[in-house]
Design a protein around this nucleic acid. Structure first.
Lengths: 209, 209
DNA sequence: ACCTTCTTGTGAAACAGTTAGCAAATAATA
DNA sequence: TATTATTTGCTAACTGTTTCACAAGAAGGT
């Protein structure tokens, strides 16, 4: 694909744009300008155009963008013109919540399995998947062609399950544990640290006065 | 307080450093260099020193940092030398998971109330708080001196509950709904969009081949 | 056909954040 | 006390991202 690097912030904004466009389509809007998108999602219009410019020319000068066409391009760019199989490791509160979160399904992310080691949790149903023992990790990843592993275990177990996921063949890991994970270069890693987010808030409340 | 702006990335890293230092204290480590911190959390040592330099001089040249002292400074900088009262709006799967998440309590964030409008959910217990009707929002915020509102309602209700939170007097909002919220300047807002995170992954898997 | 209005796409400028490198400070050793 | 080995704090260089500003293209009106 394309040669040079896309800023991560750009990718995140594309995701936001795509959802905004979806909403517009729902409302029956056919055409939109970069300025309207910008106001809708809270960035500058130059930012919107720059972000899109990484991938091509999708608009018409003097006119704007066709909502459905741009939406289609964005979904393709984000890799959402297909579905992705994912597995959740850790069936605690957060893991369970994510397993049942509709927001993933509606964007094409399908949770194929949820694993845990706690006997209390094994066998319980989360939507239409049943919590299974950690042992079946490699098996489930391979038989379901799972590319994304979601880690929601305590910090102490995070590196271990991550290693197992990588060994089993996942390409990307979304880590919710408050632990810095070591992964090979070819593995795509993202960290979502819930406490960090609250702490940025408390810093800002504190600091702005 | 301080005059010039701290990068958000710096604040996030400070939070990560602080947790790493806590772990070190637990392990009985007394002193540490920026290089060791750097390797522990996966950044460069120059980055660590730069981040700390925004706030003062906490180390000793030729020696390093005293773990407990640096930890104390970081906790104070992050505003974690006190506790913060928070409220969760939306007792769905995610809201419930957050209400029960120990990671918040251990860092001084106390969930004082969880509200929802669904009669099915009202009255259910989440740990030691009971889900209540949305009506009591202003009352709960004021009587508990709540500064942080956590929004876990569907996108369609997000702006409305946000407005209510602001009106009731919260200073900061952590938004988990996939919706761009409009808030006054003085309100501190952070968005944690779970789908965006997965979509950055799918983009990267897609794009890197 | 020409003029006016609109809005994209893009190079250049401005800004922000990260990395590099080194002087200054400390401790240990002889 | 001098020497050596460390490691911070800080400035400067670098790299990356965002904003600016405008030429180019499109549509509608006259």
């Amino acid at each position: 694909m394309k040669a040079y690097k896309i800023p991560e912030a750009t990718v995140m904004r594309l995701s936001v744009y795509s959802r905004y466009l979806y909403q517009l389509m729902d409302d029956g809007v056919k055409s939109i300008s970069s300025d309207e998108i910008a106001r809708g999602v809270g960035v500058s219009s130059a930012q919107v155009r720059k972000d899109l410019a990484y991938f091509g020319e999708f608009g018409t000068r003097g006119v704007g963008y066709k909502v459905d066409v741009l939406y289609g391009h964005l979904m393709k760019i984000l890799g959402l013109d297909r579905s992705w199989n994912a597995i959740i490791i850790g069936a605690g509160k957060l893991g369970s919540a994510l397993a049942l979160y509709e927001g993933f399904n509606t964007r094409g992310f399908i949770i194929r399995a949820v694993l845990d080691n706690d006997p209390e949790r094994i066998g319980t149903k989360l939507g239409n998947v049943e919590v299974e023992k950690l042992d079946v990790l490699a098996e489930r990843v391979q038989e379901n062609n799972i590319t994304i592993g979601i880690v929601t275990v305590p910090a102490s177990a995070a590196q271990e399950v991550t290693d197992k996921l990588i060994h089993a063949g996942v390409k990307a890991i979304l880590n919710f544990s408050p632990r810095v994970l070591k992964v090979p270069n070819k593995i795509i890693l993202r960290n979502v640290d819930l406490s960090v987010n609250l702490e940025v808030l408390s810093f800002n409340i504190n600091f702005s006065k």
